[in-house]
Each structure stands twice: as C-alpha cells, then as structure tokens.
C-alpha cells in the first residue's frame, strides 16, 4: 500500500508543479518589473512615448499597435470564420464540409514563422504596390496575415459551439418546416451565442499574443500610427526586439511591464472565455 500512496503523491506533485509554472512566470515578471511599478512611474510608462534618446520609456505606441493589429485581424477573421463554421455545420454538401473541417484542423499546424515569411515576400509587396504608400510593412499587412492565423482556432471553436446545440431542438424546427438556414438563424445561432462569443475572445487572445507575424510584417516603428497603412510595433515585437545587455536599465525594465500586460490580457481572455462557454469546450 505504500507504493500506492507514493504513486498518488507523485501524480499530485506533477500537477502542482505544472500549476506552479503558470504562477512562477507571473511572479518573475512582476518582481523584475517592480521597480517601475512601485515608484509611481507606471502612468508615465503606460502613457508616454518611446524615445530612449530623451530618456522616455513609455510603451503607449506599442499598446496602441497591439490593439490596432489585433482588432483589425479580429474584424477580418470573425465574419470569415463564422461563415466557414456555418458552411461546415449547415450549408455544405456533406463531403465538402468534412473536407473543409479537416483542412481547418491541419491549418492549426502551420507555423507562424511560415506565415510571416510568406507575408514578407508575397503580401507586403502587394500592399506596397496597391497602396502606393510606404514600404508595405504596415498594420494592414500584419492584420491580414494574423487573421489567417487565428481563423482556424475560431472556426473549430464555432463548429463545436454549433454542434453542441441539442439535435432535438434542430429537429423540432425542422418539423415546423424550417429550412436548414432558418434553423441556423432561429435555433443554432441564438443557442450557441455564448460559445460563439467565447470563440471570439479566444481569437482576440491569440491575436494579441502572436509575435512573429507582427515582428516580420508590421515594420516595428515606434511612432504612433495614423492610418492602417502606417507601420507600428506591438508589445510582443517590442519584447523580441530589445536585447539589452544592461539588466538594470529602465529600457529593459519596461519589457517586463509589456510582458505583464500581455500576461494579464491573455489571462483575462481565458477567464472570460471559461465563463462564457457554459459547458467545458475543448480549446483548439
């Protein structure tokens, strides 16, 4: 019986150590960013401009950049993703729907760096030529590519949400003479509303957390963008770009504030998503 208890403790230890990992990352960032958080400079960091020459280390341009790119990607990806989910669940001829479902599953495996690479050599020249403005490294390029990255995650979530509506409800509508599209509008969408919303939140979390696409396609300028054809820098790209040798410099400290913001945003997204999705849904 002793080995029995040993095994169980080992399993519990594995679980607790893994859970501690999530907390550990947060604590590390919080402790290292503390000097900036503690002495009241926080507002200056959050709202100021970034210009190391003048000893200004504000990250407002990066916060704006992240919000711009993530919301553009979301605005592009949500309608298409919902359309694809409807296609898979309702309007597709049987074989085609399954084929698209498989394709979407495989799409989740495409590395982000490949999206970035294709973006640089295919999308950026296209945006540059069509807009005739700047280098093509812009919010638009990054947003377009990013929408392709987050679409499969959302589609899989939407499909699960639509499929989770009890078959009997659909059959009842069918018996009343509703066509498949009418069933979708009056039964499926209203009932799956919360899961659909949860999927959008999940997509937003993914969009904010991605590094490579923004880093490679958004141009990384620290100026505040004026239009979607302007370059910008996201919080993630900001972290990736600075390799400061001096661990104590305020420049380096701001990275931990960026990381904390990202951590809190994605945690918030997870919390909202879990609240919205009533039944536990498999997060793709």
């Amino acid at each position: 019986m002793r080995s029995e208890r040993c095994m169980q403790s080992a399993l519990a230890a594995a679980a607790w150590i893994s859970a501690a990992a999530a907390v550990l990352i947060f604590l590390f960032m919080a402790v290292l960013g503390w000097p900036l958080l503690g002495n009241g400079d926080l507002m200056q960091v959050l709202c100021g401009p970034w210009s190391p020459m003048h000893h200004q280390y504000g990250i407002r341009p990066m916060i704006l950049g992240t919000l711009c790119i993530a919301s553009l990607a979301l605005a592009l990806a949500v309608p298409v993703s919902l359309g694809c989910a409807v296609f898979i669940q309702v309007t597709a001829p049987k074989g085609l729907g399954r084929a698209l479902h498989h394709l979407v599953r495989l799409m989740t495996g495409i590395p982000t760096v490949v999206y970035g690479f294709v973006g640089i050599f295919l999308l950026v020249p296209l945006v540059r030529n069509l807009s005739g403005h700047g280098a093509g490294l812009s919010i638009l390029s990054a947003g377009l590519m990013l929408s392709l990255l987050i679409a499969p995650t959302m589609i899989l979530f939407f499909v699960q949400g639509l499929a989770a509506v009890p078959q009997s409800h659909r059959q009842a509508a069918c018996a009343l003479g509703a066509t498949p599209v009418q069933q979708l509008i009056y039964v499926l969408l209203p009932q799956a509303r919360r899961t659909l919303l949860a999927g959008v939140v999940l997509g937003l979390g993914r969009a904010m957390g991605d590094t490579l696409i923004a880093l490679m396609l958004a141009g990384n300028s620290v100026a505040t963008p004026q239009s979607i054809l302007d370059p910008t820098r996201t919080l993630t790209a900001h972290i990736a770009l600075i390799i400061a040798a001096d661990f104590e410099s305020p420049e380096f400290r701001t990275l931990f504030i960026c990381a904390l913001i990202l951590y809190l945003m994605t945690t918030l997204a997870v919390a909202v998503m879990r609240r919205l999705a009533a039944k536990p849904v498999e997060i793709p």
Partner: peptide
C-alpha cells in the same frame, strides 16, 4: 491555471 498557462504568449515565456 493550466488554461492560463496555455494562453501565455510564447514571447513572454521567452522573456521568462
């Protein structure tokens, strides 16, 4: 906690 860990952007893990 595991969902939170899954949501942490990889660049944050990199900085860690």
């Amino acid at each position: 906690l595991f969902d939170v860990l899954a949501g942490v952007p990889s660049i944050v893990v990199g900085l860690f």
